[in-house]
């Protein structure tokens, strides 16, 4: 096992090749972001001659990103946290079949992943509950929409956690909820981090639903400003690319930190165990 790990030449070579296949095309986006629109139109692929750093400033100002940044953080944090908590609570009884019809519930959540979205009916529900155009309304709706995938993943994950733990906890007289929160939750850290991250990305990068459910501009997240570079017949790619890079930066940083955190957390845990 140890030797298998330390022989890192082959894995490194494979991964480096894959990383290059990923990275080289993606550098194109940086290349595009630095071009003037004229240069992009004339020659989209060539390497940029005079980097236009001002593109980033233009994207920032004309998409009014400073207004929206705060909103994006609020939505992303609460939706990701909400999805993880609500889905963990729901996944445990389903995975352990503690309720009647848990198989049905499981299929119900699963099928929600591909149920055709009923936008107009959803709109009426939002309106009827007075959730339109509010922070919490948007957050609750996004949690509802992100739940099914989270429940699906968590259920599978909990099934992989030995049942003996449950029984040990039961002997201890550990409360049902306390068990989920204090014993199960830490064990599920890798899954929770992953799902949290995926739903954070989904919320952060959501383009259209803010326009539908948030009528006041002041409530909208970051992405909504980006739309203005995508014209009817033409797209201003350099500015759009700059805008997308600005928006992606916090996510990328978060990803790098989070996934380091997942790994170290688990190794520490397994040494203890």
């Amino acid at each position: 096992m140890k030797r298998f790990l330390s022989k890192s030449l082959l894995p490194n070579a494979v991964l480096l090749a894959v990383a290059l296949i990923m990275l080289i095309p993606m550098l194109q986006i940086v290349n595009v972001a630095l071009k003037s629109n004229a240069e992009f139109l004339a020659n989209p692929i060539s390497i940029v001659k005079k980097p236009q750093w001002s593109n980033f400033i233009e994207a920032w100002t004309s998409a009014e990103m400073s207004i929206y940044f705060f909103n994006s953080f609020i939505y992303t944090f609460f939706v990701a946290a909400g999805v993880c908590i609500v889905a963990t609570l729901a996944a445990y009884p389903i995975a352990r079949k503690h309720v009647k019809g848990s198989n049905f519930l499981y299929m119900l959540f699963l099928s929600a992943l591909f149920l055709p979205a009923g936008l107009v009916p959803l709109l009426f529900i939002m309106k009827y509950l007075n959730l339109m155009n509010t922070y919490h309304g948007f957050i609750l709706m996004k949690i509802g929409g992100g739940l099914s995938v989270a429940v699906f993943i968590f259920t599978a994950f909990i099934k992989g956690i030995p049942k003996e733990l449950d029984e040990a906890a039961a002997i201890d007289g550990c409360g049902y909820l306390r068990y989920v929160l204090t014993i199960l939750l830490p064990l599920m850290k890798p899954a929770i981090m992953t799902v949290g991250m995926l739903s954070a990305i989904g919320t952060w990068n959501d383009f259209i639903s803010p326009y539908v459910f948030l009528i006041d501009k002041e409530l909208r997240p970051l992405t909504s400003g980006l739309y203005m570079f995508m014209g009817e017949y033409t797209v201003n790619w350099p500015i759009l690319a700059s805008g997308i890079l600005i928006i992606a930066a916090p996510l990328l940083i978060a990803f790098i930190f989070l996934q380091k955190f997942i790994v170290s957390g688990i190794t520490a845990g397994s040494i203890k165990g």
Partner: peptide, 23 residues
């Protein structure tokens, strides 16, 4: 004035939802 514009690809969605909601 509350002015909103989205690209043609998403306009139908905005159009349907705003007219349905009377917004």
């Amino acid at each position: 004035i509350k002015y909103d514009s989205v690209p043609t690809k998403d306009y139908q969605v905005l159009f349907n939802s705003r007219t349905a909601a009377g917004e």
